[in-house]
């Protein structure tokens, strides 16, 4: 599998173009490219420090959020019903090539 291209808008509004590698979750792709994603719990949907916004068209193509993920997100800053995800819960998929991801405000 080849890498996905990924566009990230950080908390200052700057844009970064990254490579998303097949063995990375979205959180890992962000963190390993030095974006300020804390991911305190290590990707177990426990802390909401890897919260991102996806575009609605992309969001709608994904599987439903788990109960844990949703519970953490609904109280998170800037929660979007049709856009908020924990990036640790998004595995690589070629369907996500070229997506734009916005980092949510820090908790």
């Amino acid at each position: 599998m080849s890498n996905n291209k990924l566009t990230v808008i950080d908390r200052e509004g700057s844009t970064h173009d990254l490579q998303w590698e097949p063995d990375q979750t979205l959180m890992e792709a962000l963190r390993d490219n030095d974006l300020p994603v804390l991911a305190s719990c290590g990707g177990t949907a426990s802390c909401a420090t890897c919260h991102v916004f996806l575009e609605k068209e992309v969001f709608d193509t994904l599987a439903e959020r788990s109960e844990d993920e949703l519970e953490l997100l609904v109280d998170a800053e800037g929660y979007q019903e049709c856009g908020s995800r924990l990036s640790c819960q998004l595995a690589f998929s070629q369907d996500l090539n070229g997506v734009t991801v916005t980092l949510a405000p820090e908790e």
Binding site: D23, Q24, D32, C41, G42, T44, S46
Partner: peptide, 21 residues
């Protein structure tokens, strides 16, 4: 953190979650 939580669950894989690849 998963060592006392997810890892102990029935059917959970033995592989640990690495901090970084």
């Amino acid at each position: 953190p998963p060592l006392s939580k997810e890892l102990l669950k029935a059917g959970a894989p033995d592989e640990s979650t690495v901090l970084r690849k």
